[in-house]
């Protein structure tokens, strides 16, 4: 039983990082109906910004919680800028193009970031500095908690709560919901849709950047291709929860994290990466709207 709870803890900690990435996917999809393939690469850039900034400030030698929060903030700002640039340079000019063109561009941006990342950072894995190193493990009723996992989970929860507040309690959030509901109508009501879309990309990218730092903290080996798999899995999580639905993304991501932890523990570790796609195919077969999604009627 203790072992079971151990897997639950591991699953939730992985799931919470998926959730941070999935939120960006689901927000962008909600507002533009676009699968932003480059999102996983923004996550990768977050990890690299975190690594280089903590090297620059020498946080590796003086680990503290403040150091962690500082590089977290830097990575989030850096990724928000990246998200803004990606949207502005690659997606906005295609706002009126056929969907397949935007999709191809998204794939192009994703690969461009991956491979220029390889040129820039080198393709060998880099070590993410230990900016925060709590000592010892915490135990609760026999279940071991790695303090890092707890910190990562707490930070994720805080960020998600902030996002929830922004979406449902601010004017910007209301504008975002309006644009995702009906783009043209929102624009007629005087909402600056382009600015709102930019903000959405920035918010989502900032969360992905935070996820990059947090993942770097738990698995301190980072490389330019690290974003692909978590990116795809986060997308699956978003579809599982009902794409376009913010709560759904979080629930879907935690479910996926748990499912992966159990597959690794009780079945075969090699199936870890295949699981996400099996879930995706099952979801598309049996409940394409996901757990929380609502059916959108097609309008001509």
């Amino acid at each position: 039983m203790i072992e079971f709870f151990q897997h639950v803890v591991n699953g939730i900690s992985v799931g919470s990082t998926y959730a941070l990435i999935a939120l960006g996917y689901t927000m962008v999809f909600g507002i533009l109906q676009l699968i932003n393939f480059a999102h996983g690469e923004v996550f990768m850039l977050g990890a690299f910004i975190g690594m280089y900034s903590s090297r620059y400030f020498g946080f590796g030698e003086h680990p503290s919680l403040w150091a962690l929060l500082a590089i977290l903030a830097l990575a989030m700002v850096g990724c928000a800028i990246m998200g803004f640039l990606i949207e502005r340079l690659a997606y906005r000019p295609l706002r009126r193009s056929p969907r397949i063109n935007v999709l191809i561009t998204a794939v192009g941006v994703s690969l461009f970031l991956q491979f220029s990342g390889q040129l820039l950072f080198g393709s060998d894995p880099k070590f993410f500095p230990q900016v925060f190193q709590p000592s010892g493990d915490w135990t609760l009723g026999g279940v071991r908690f790695n303090p890092l996992q707890v910190i990562v989970f707490c930070i994720s929860i805080v960020l998600m709560a902030i996002l929830q507040t922004i979406i449902f309690r601010t004017r910007l959030g209301r504008a975002m919901r309006a644009v995702s509901f009906n783009h043209d109508l929102a624009s007629l009501m005087g909402i600056p849709t382009n600015a709102v879309i930019s903000y959405t990309f920035m918010l989502g990218s900032a969360l992905a950047g935070a996820a990059g730092v947090l993942v770097g903290l738990i698995y301190p080996k980072i490389e330019p291709l690290m974003g692909t798999m978590p990116g795809l899995k986060a997308f699956v999580a978003a579809v599982l929860g009902g794409i376009g639905n913010v709560t759904g993304a979080v629930v879907g991501a935690l479910t996926l994290g748990l499912a992966e932890a159990f597959v690794v523990a009780y079945y075969a570790p090699t199936f870890r990466d295949a699981l996400a796609f099996i879930i995706l195919i099952l979801i598309l077969l049996f409940k394409p709207t996901g757990l929380f999604g609502t059916r959108r009627t097609e309008k001509v």
Binding site: I35, L103, L232, F235, V236, D273, A274, F277, I281, L284
Partner: peptide, 27 residues
């Protein structure tokens, strides 16, 4: 691979085929 993803409108095929390629390789 195609039937579940092509039944729906939208770009699910892209993700499913991408994942499928990876799965085949792992298998």
């Amino acid at each position: 691979v195609g039937l579940p993803s092509l039944r729906l409108k939208g770009d699910y095929l892209a993700i499913v085929t991408l994942g499928f390629g990876e799965i085949i390789r792992v298998v």
